[in-house]
Amino acid sequence: MSRNRNSRHGKSKITVGEKGRQVLENIDENNRVIKMFLGFRKELDEKHDRYEKIVKLSRDITIENKRIIFLLHSTNTDIEGKREAVLDEACKRLKVITDENFKTIASILKDFDSYQYQKAYTSGLQEFIEALVFYQFLHSNKIESWESINKFFQYEQDGEKFSLLFPQLDFILGIADFTGELMRRCINNLGVGNVSDCFKTCNFVKDIYTGFLGIINPGAKEMGRKTYVLKQSLAKMELVCYNIQIRGSEIPKHMLVNVIESSDMNTEEDEGFY
C-alpha cells in the first residue's frame, strides 16, 4: 500500500510508515522498551512451557486410565480368581498414576497458583476419577468421598510437603463419566446373562442421577452437558431392566441383549477406549 502512494507522489521521498521505520532502525537491544519486552518474553515463555508440559503429562494419564477402564470391564466374568487378579492389577496401576504421574504435576506446580494451570490437567484428572471410582465400585460397591480421595494427592518429598489441586468439580464430573462405564457394564452383564447385576448397576446410577438433579451450580456448563449424557445412559439402562422384567421369561437371557441393542437408543457419546 505504501508503494502505491509513493509512486503517486513521484519524487517525494515521504512514505507511509516512514516514521515507524526510522524508529525501528534506531532501536537496539539497549532501548528501554525492548529491554522490558525481552523480560516479558522470558516470563511468558516460561509460563507457556510449563503449561504445555502439564498438558502432555495429563495426556499420558488419560491414556493409561482409559486402558485401566478397559481392563476393569474384563471383570465381568464368573471366574472369581480372575476377577480378583484384574482388580489387583488395576489397583496397582491406579497407584502408579497417583504416586508418579500426578506427583510430577504437583511438584512442577508447587510454587505456583495451581488454578492457573488447572485446565491443563483437568481432563487427565477426570479420567483418573472415572477409572478410580469404577475400581472402587467393583471392589467394594461404593464410592469414596472427595475428602478421602484427596488424600491420595498429598505428597512428601525430601521432607517437603506439597499437594495437587483436586477441585471437587472434577470429582463430580469424573463420576458423571463413570456412569457411562456402568451403562456399558450393565449391557455386558446382560450379555453374559447376569441379570441381578443389571438391576444393581441400574439402581446405583439412579442414585447418582438423583444426586446430580439436586445440585444447583450456576456457571458450570460442563455439568449440564454431562448430566444430559447421564440421563441418556440411565434411560438406556432402565429400558434394559424393563425388558428383563417383562420379557425375561420369553427368551433366553443372553438373547435379550440383542433386543435392547436393536432398539434405536444411540447414546454413545463417550468414546471409551478401544
Partner: peptide
C-alpha cells in the same frame, strides 16, 4: 451417595 458425594459438593 448423597451424603458423601453430593452434599459436600
Amino acid at each position: 451417595i448423597l451424603e458423601n458425594i453430593f452434599t459436600p459438593f
